[in-house]
């Protein structure tokens, strides 16, 4: 298989097994720049593992992940981030003991080396950017609060904000609206639509309404393989998908 140069992300033949169990099995898919791709599939299908493989949290046993033509499988996690890939975890992963401001500030892409962090100054550019992101994620009034005081939905937004401040070319979100109230879901969809314009996004989500709302294309995963791929209409009509996933 050859990789056309204009794909932002090209995943080819990606595999990993845990104790002989193939969680991801010879998986290939391609994501365009500025595309919103949603990955759906039953629990245990390997969705989270795919994101883990792309961002370097799990090492692939075979296959390649090319991002802007660069092989990611050999890079370390922080190098993958610096290459422009942001990852949101399934459960909110924020620094509860720090304030909302500090959470965002730590994620601001400057002073990432030890001595860079020592010399880092909270200047106007940092404050400005933190405020900008905070207003995007509906948390501007909470900047001085410790993050542990936030609601579950607000924590999810904060983590999204921590990624946005890095301005990644590829944003990967693992179930961003899980556990949110209806109104929070609506706000999140609005937030994502607003911020997802200038970048590619890979979203794992179970909420079908939400998926229909935002997805350009959908990849259905089953037992570590692609079961179906295409527009929401297409995969919804696919009998295999109905059988293993949507049917329940």
């Amino acid at each position: 298989m050859t990789e056309p140069a204009d794909f932002l992300l090209a995943v080819e033949g990606l595999s990993v097994s845990f104790d002989g169990f193939k969680a991801v099995d010879d998986l290939s898919f391609y994501v365009d720049a500025n595309e919103i791709r949603v990955i759906i599939g039953p629990n245990g299908a390997g969705k989270t593992t795919v994101l883990d493989l792309i961002c370097g949290r799990t090492r692939a046993s075979a296959g390649s992940v090319r991002f802007r033509g660069r092989e990611l499988t050999r890079l370390k996690e922080h190098q993958i981030v610096q290459a422009g890939v942001g990852r949101k975890f399934q459960t909110p992963s924020i620094y509860e003991e720090l304030t909302v401001f500090e959470n965002l500030e730590i994620s601001f892409p400057r002073g990432r080396s030890v001595f860079g962090a020592l010399a880092f100054r909270r200047d106007e550019a940092v404050r400005e950017r933190v405020r900008e992101i905070a207003s995007l994620i509906f948390l501007e009034p909470m900047l001085g609060e410790r993050a542990e005081a936030l609601s579950h939905g607000q924590k999810q937004w904060l983590e999204i904000g921590m990624l946005l401040i890095q301005d990644p070319a590829l944003l990967m979100l693992d179930e961003p609206v899980a556990g949110m109230s209806v109104s929070e879901r609506r706000k999140t969809a609005e937030l994502l639509r607003r911020v997802l314009r200038d970048r590619a996004v890979l979203v794992i989500e179970h909420d079908m309404g939400f998926v229909e709302d935002i997805a350009h294309r959908v990849t259905v995963l089953h037992q570590g393989r692609v079961l179906s791929e295409g527009s929401m209409q297409h995969v919804k009509a696919d009998p295999k998908v109905v059988e293993v996933y949507l049917g329940h």
Partner: peptide
């Protein structure tokens, strides 16, 4: 900021790593 990164690391090492 290094001091705050240390605290962040103690709490969520992965998040710090995946912040670059």
């Amino acid at each position: 900021k290094l001091g705050r990164i240390l605290l962040a690391m103690r709490e969520r090492e992965d998040r710090v790593r995946f912040s670059g």
